[in-house]
Design a protein around this nucleic acid. Structure first.
Lengths: 354, 354
DNA sequence: ATCCTGACCGCAATCGTTTGTGCTACACCC
DNA sequence: GGGTGTAGCACAAACGATTGCGGTCAGGAT
């Protein structure tokens, strides 16, 4: 590894290693005279001293490592969050460790445990399930953690996401504004917060207008994939329900539905309007370009990182056991909802007059 | 951090910590009787022992950390590589640290140095420039490193990428097969290996057929972006060169060119054929769907990781200075080119008969 | 002149593992 | 039975930084 150690710096500055340590550490610098502090700093600079992370970590039980857990880096939803998080973390001297769980609960658990063993200072987790034992344990162990994009039912961990209710409402209002009265919703999987929240928001938004509702109006998809979206769409068609617009739980579902419609000879936007969610890259280049709800993904990443840093500072050195003071009841923690916007594009239009 | 340490395990098994250490380490297990080894293993299991990475790293100068450097996680080209690399690394007990340089040489240097200070065991680098001082230094310092996707001029570091020459040849042959005779090439930036390699391959492929060549036939773009591609395309149009097909340095350039052509009223594929490179997600859903060369991105990631692991093993504990035996000349290292394929889709067709 | 105070810094223990060295038996051979 | 090997393990010294504790010294108060 690197050659020059603290003792070298100390020798060069003519002081004891302990003193050099204090001089270099901003938090303890005032225990040392300004003169020696300067001298040590200069020596360190000159010799190109960089502290040995292992030694430091061994003593302080701080790794300056943060784990970020995503289901699939390949899904374009996540990279912007990763990027945002990494920017603020690295600026704060932390290093981001990315792990991809491949959407599998087992590997997720393994990865998290491996990172915990490594002394990771905290986690940013984008894989939360609505009921999530692993996260319950993490919360129990008081490991600094913040959820992003997906929340849990418990609400015991800080969360940052987009304002899904607002996004759905925007979409529904837009469709209603165009003249649509019968709108179907292709919901995401109901074991994720986004699937549940958006579905609930849809019902609420529809109830806000005086629109007809019918039994098969909201149909959950098995997954956030094109295949699942297509399947749900054909089921919807088979149900013979009348509808002039479809709101999808996310863009992939919307794309799948679009495929199904076009295969059934139902042209968009002439015969059916479709709205997605997430505004994935490229969906604005399709024909017709997809109308969709845009989330501030990058900002979600940066905010999550900032909240995590606060949490880490508050927790102090990782004592694992957590502080003795346990609140009377599981306290409610910060749930941040960021503003979203609707991108109106080519897949939405006034309904055909029947 | 975690409560139970090696000494606890040793006590439980009735042996000295040193012995417990050997018993737990597969490489030194044979210095201990089978009986005690079993006993220690059982005790460790029962107590839930996980070794302290700091202490271990402090002693062994091994971090089991690998840094992966990409210019921009948000570019869909990279996530599959990251994913592939992470899969093989984590299976080998390593942890992947991802860092995004934002395409900036300065932050790249800072990130790499920070990771080096952290004792990172090796690097997978996807940001190589054709002339790259930082990588020269890294090679000099003998830090285990493998380049992926982009190479350097020196060829002193192991590299894994797609077989660009073959890809370009496939594309050119395809166009020629359709009847095209005048093909232009919109090259990527010439400070990257991909930009240079593909351009050279294009010239070679064209020379392989008896096609006309002309002065403005290959035009470098300033960057791998849609804007740069569009700009190059309008320059190409302005040059009044006759051409019936365009091969692009990558998909983004192709998309930009497509935009420019459509703005100029030149319809694709009727009046001009276009083929891209990389096969980004979604480009198969555009109208017309983009014909392009597909790279085995995931496999590039896994192979890079495997080569890196070999290198790390060969290098042994990070001694920084490198072994004393220096080869007479900078030896040529493994340069792996993976097979590519051409996805023939809607942007290529026989040229209009003039 | 003595005592006290506080600023500054040195000393040494400590974090938890790994690993070179050396001790103790026991087995084996002639 | 004495010498030689060898297997199995204990001992303790590292690795490099942090930090509680205590010592020194100058300067001011009494």
């Amino acid at each position: 590894m690197q050659r020059v150690k603290l003792a070298d710096v100390a020798r060069a500055a003519g002081v004891h290693p302990g003193t050099a340590s204090r001089a270099l550490n901003p938090a303890t610098r005032d225990q040392v005279s300004r003169a020696t502090s300067k001298r040590v700093a200069r020596a360190a600079e000159r010799l190109g001293y960089v502290p040995n992370t292992f030694a430091r970590g061994l003593r302080t039980a701080r790794s300056y490592l943060v784990g970020m857990v995503v289901p699939d880096v390949t899904n374009p939803l996540f990279p912007p969050m990763v990027r945002g998080a990494e920017q603020v973390l690295s600026r704060a001297g932390y290093t981001l460790v990315l792990t991809d769980t491949d959407n599998d609960a087992g590997t997720e658990r393994r990865q998290v445990e491996q990172l915990r063993a490594r002394g990771t200072d905290g986690f940013i987790i984008a894989t939360a399930r609505w009921e999530d034992r692993l996260l319950d344990e993490v919360a129990e162990a008081r490991v600094p953690t913040v959820l992003v994009n997906r929340n849990t039912s418990g609400g015991r961990l800080p969360y940052v996401g987009g304002d899904e209710r607002a996004g759905i409402k925007l979409a529904v209002d837009h469709l209603v504004g165009l003249g649509h009265r019968r709108i179907a919703y292709l919901a995401g999987p109901q074991d994720t917060s986004t699937g549940r929240e958006r579905a609930a928001a849809f019902r609420q938004a529809v109830a806000g207008h005086t629109l007809p509702t019918w039994r098969t109006q909201v149909r959950p998809c098995a997954a956030y994939t094109e295949a699942a979206g297509a399947a749900a769409a054909v089921r919807l068609l088979a149900s013979a329900a009348e509808f002039t617009a479809v709101l999808a739980g996310n863009d992939l579902i919307a794309l799948g539905a679009l495929d199904a419609f076009s295969r059934a000879g139902i042209h968009c936007p002439d015969r059916v309007s479709v709205v997605g969610f997430n505004d994935l890259p490229m969906v604005d280049r399709l024909t017709p370009p997809l109308s969709t709800v845009r989330l501030p993904l990058h900002e979600m990443g940066t905010l999550a990182a900032r909240i995590l840093l606060d949490e880490i500072d508050a927790a102090g050195p990782t004592d694992g056991g957590g502080s003795a003071m346990q609140p009377a009841q599981p306290q409610r923690v910060a749930q941040s909802l960021l503003g979203v916007e609707l991108a109106v594009r080519g897949t939405t239009a006034a309904p055909a007059r029947s």
